[in-house]
């Protein structure tokens, strides 16, 4: 078994109103950053997970997303796992 750092990105589903993204977009525009077409705000969650393979770690976290970490009505998620240091004890 190894320890993996799993990065989870939870983002508002496409088409869903994202008032935070809109407010940030507005602020960027007022600073002169006209090249920004859209801003969407989500959240990043980092988990240290012990598993046999990165795929196993990722699948475990995807299961957690469906159950708790993301709301399927309003949010999409993306999971990436990378090995973290030596083997877990």
């Amino acid at each position: 078994m190894s320890r993996f750092t799993v990065e989870l990105l939870v983002t508002p589903r496409p088409g869903l109103l994202d008032p935070q993204g809109k407010a940030i977009h507005h602020a960027l525009s007022s600073l002169g950053y006209d090249a920004v077409d859209e801003v969407r705000v989500g959240k990043a969650i980092y988990l240290e997970v012990t598993a046999a393979t990165p795929e196993a770690a990722r699948e475990r976290v995807e299961e957690m997303c469906r159950k708790l970490l993301a709301n399927p009505v309003t949010e999409d998620f993306r999971v990436t796992a990378s090995q973290n240091g030596g083997a877990a004890g």
């Binding site: 869903l16 109103l17 008032p19 407010a23 709301n71 009505v73 309003t74």
Partner: peptide, 17 residues
């Protein structure tokens, strides 16, 4: 109740923030 699936939909951040 929405999170528990007893009612449909979700309550998002107020549009005004």
């Amino acid at each position: 109740l929405c999170e528990a699936g007893l009612l449909p939909g979700a309550l998002l951040r107020n549009e005004s923030l």
